[in-house]
Design a protein around this nucleic acid. Sequence first.
DNA 1: GTTTGACTCTGTATTGACTACAGGGTTTAC
DNA 2: GTAAACCCTGTAGTCAATACAGAGTCAAAC
Lengths: 150, 150
Amino acid sequence: MGQGMPLNSDKPITRGYIAKLTGCSSETIRYYEQIGLLAEPNRGENGYRYYYDTHVSHLKFIDRAKQLGFDNKEIHELLNIADGPENHTRAEVKALTEAHINTIRQRILTLQKMESTLSAVWEQCDGSDGDAEHCPIILSLLSDSDETCE
Amino acid sequence: MGQGMPLNSDKPITRGYIAKLTGCSSETIRYYEQIGLLAEPNRGENGYRYYYDTHVSHLKFIDRAKQLGFDNKEIHELLNIADGPENHTRAEVKALTEAHINTIRQRILTLQKMESTLSAVWEQCDGSDGDAEHCPIILSLLSDSDETCE
DNA sequence: GTTTGACTCTGTATTGACTACAGGGTTTAC
DNA sequence: GTAAACCCTGTAGTCAATACAGAGTCAAAC
């Protein structure tokens, strides 16, 4: 029931502390503020940034979205939606997510092609102390495989 | 039998022409030279770069390695090996390739996890014109899923 | 013979998502 | 009281290009 971390909603916390709380580095937090991803916090008389609960939950939101592969621009949109969901539809969120899923699927396909090609030449290479001249990996990079009619 | 492109080994070609031959942009070619990936070509009296066959085959090598996901540093090593294979072993090439394959496999795993998580929430969202407040995608980003004992 | 357009040259700025300083000021712990 | 540990700012670096400004050069059309 909310122990562990004594986070009084009214007591502001420093950058180093919110960094530990969220797992972000304090430099990253400054960066997020700079690019407008995280709202500017209040400042103390000494110029120190002081953060509240909302900053903590926003940073956690950012972290989760990042783990799902969203880039900062997409996370910015998602945060806007989360902060004012009454101005957005589920259709909008679903479309945004779908586009992202497609990007990820495309990346997977590209990587899988690389993997299978690489694995094939890797298996052909005997991995011995012999001269790299006859290494099938090097040979495959040297040969115009698509232009074999040369 | 080597027609199609009349490439006399002794006639140097300009940057724009080698760009068309290899599919790289001419800016990219200048960039490769800058980072030491492509050897500095001779210059004409006017300061123009003039390329030979070796540059063409090096650029093609780079392109093929890039398609297999190698980064510029790795390609640099591979090019060194291809240019002086007597100083390298097949074991070395195989190890380099294996490390790269492992990186790619790791990336695939990460992306597949993202994909399955995203697909799951995507399916839960009805995609209607309704308020985004109850959108399961947004909710999943808002919830401390790992810290449910709060 | 000049002018037009396409090329080439250089250096520098931008992208994205940070990370890593340098060179100060402040706060905390002992 | 002093030293460590924090905070502040601005700036530079990373990777792999891409893009642009401003200048010079070249080939061909008119």
